[in-house]
């Protein structure tokens, strides 16, 4: 089975994000990067499938800044977990703030590849768009099931059963393959790469690709920081008087009860 996994590198979620002087971009100098946490679930699921089905291949696909060392580091982490190959599409010159453009650049590079399943994260924790997977599936004309928490591929590899949290409960779906599935937390527990895996990954080649620029559909005009939450108050006094005080504040001051 051929599995493609979309992986993006994102700033560590603990990072302090600072804006540049004209508020058009973030300062990237000191940022520490990680694999987008949702993409780790996607990688893990792909590797699990490849362990289950003989002759499988897991190819990581990343659109990112090829000049940045961290980008290849991100891919190497995925290779260390057990992926077979990695393709890095250089984002230089592309306006990746537009999910349509991201999806398109990935589309250009994978439409000719063989695949049975594409796995991705549910959203990227930097831009928080959660749009790329659906847009990409649309371009490839394959079904997309988003935010899955369970995936079972049939033995003949023609269909897959999956589960996701819908509005009215847990939906169980069957999709024909090839299809794209985006991973929600709960799908699995990503593995901690073995030393052997890491050493092997360090030696692997990462294929470098490019994409033709198309015009973006959306544009970020500026960035801003949210207004800080005003400091709250600790309701003083001994129990239970403080709780009584809180209850009355909620009515008289906050007016929420």
């Amino acid at each position: 089975m051929n599995i493609l996994v979309l992986v993006k590198q994102t700033p560590d979620t603990e990072s302090k994000i600072k804006l540049n002087s004209d508020n058009t971009a973030i300062e990237t100098g000191d940022l520490k990067y990680i694999i987008n946490p949702y993409d780790e679930y996607a990688i893990e699921e792909a590797i699990k499938l490849s362990e289950k089905f003989a002759d499988s291949k897991v190819t990581l696909i990343c659109l990112g800044n090829a000049a940045l060392k961290e980008t290849t580091e991100t891919l190497r982490k995925g290779l260390a977990m057990g992926a077979s190959d990695a393709i890095l599409i250089d984002a230089a010159g592309l306006n990746t703030a537009c999910p349509y453009l991201t999806a398109n650049a990935i589309y250009q590079n994978i439409s000719s590849l063989k695949y049975d399943i594409i796995l991705s994260g549910m959203k990227a924790v930097d831009d928080d768009y959660s749009c790329v997977p659906t847009l990409l599936a649309g371009m490839l004309n394959i079904p997309a099931v988003t935010a899955i928490v369970k995936l079972t591929v049939s033995p003949d590899q023609k269909t897959a059963e999956c589960e996701r949290e819908g509005e009215s409960g847990r939906e169980v779906l069957i999709s024909s393959l090839p299809a794209l599935f985006s991973a929600q937390k709960g799908l699995n527990e990503p593995r901690y790469p073995s030393l052997k895996g890491i050493m092997a990954a360090k030696k692997k080649e990462i294929a470098n690709k490019k994409a033709e620029a198309v015009s973006p559909k959306i544009k970020i005009v500026k960035l801003s920081t949210p207004p800080p939450r005003p400091a709250g108050k600790i309701v003083k006094g001994d129990f239970p008087n403080n709780v009584k005080e809180l209850a009355s504040l909620l009515r008289s001051e906050a007016k929420v009860i």
Partner: peptide, 8 residues
Amino acid sequence: TRRDDGDI
């Protein structure tokens, strides 16, 4: 090392 297959 404290990893699977961690001996070197």
